[in-house]
């Protein structure tokens, strides 16, 4: 089984205790409440690290486990077999800046997490853009002023 399949199988078995590999899970980050009608208190969630973990913990909420998105009154685009992922810049731009209903993830994910998950998506779901996306590549687009110092 691939790591992704193992994770899926783990979920399917109902073993939902954070992630299977505690060593891969960084300290939980506390999140306070944003505006609107939300629950109170702080929430600490296991920090996903690998691309598969970030995908499963975040992206899958909309783009689905199979990366195929969905369609109703509007469409959540498929990431599976998506030629727009051929270049790394486009997915970096979308993840870091947001697009339409999709929020920017720079507040929730580190550059490393974004790099890992973009690499993961570009090498899974029928995509085979083998070159890994680096943290520095993400930083250049997500935080332009910082990139100037690099």
């Amino acid at each position: 089984m691939t790591p992704a399949n193992i994770l899926r199988a783990t979920l399917a078995a109902g073993l939902l205790v954070a992630f299977a590999l505690p060593s891969a899970v960084a300290p939980a980050a506390a999140q306070a409440v944003q505006g609107g009608d939300t629950g109170g208190g702080v929430v600490r969630v296991a920090k996903p690290v690998t691309g598969a973990q970030v995908y499963q913990s975040v992206c899958q909420a909309c783009h689905m486990q199979d990366g195929k998105g969905g369609s109703g009154a509007g469409t959540i685009p498929a990431l599976a077999s998506n030629p727009r992922l051929a270049g790394a810049a486009y997915p970096i731009m979308v993840v870091s800046k947001g697009k339409g209903a999709m929020p920017s993830f720079t507040d929730l994910l580190s550059d490393a997490q974004m790099a890992n998950v973009i690499t993961y998506v570009r090498t899974n779901f029928g995509n085979s853009y083998a070159k890994p996306v680096s943290e520095a590549e993400v930083a250049r687009i997500a935080h332009p002023p910082a990139a100037a110092r690099d």
Partner: peptide, 17 residues
């Protein structure tokens, strides 16, 4: 009543999960 990262995690699951 999950929000942010907690909500993404739960939303990504099947209803049974």
């Amino acid at each position: 009543f999950a929000r942010e990262m907690g909500a993404y995690r739960l939303a990504g699951m099947t209803p049974q999960q």
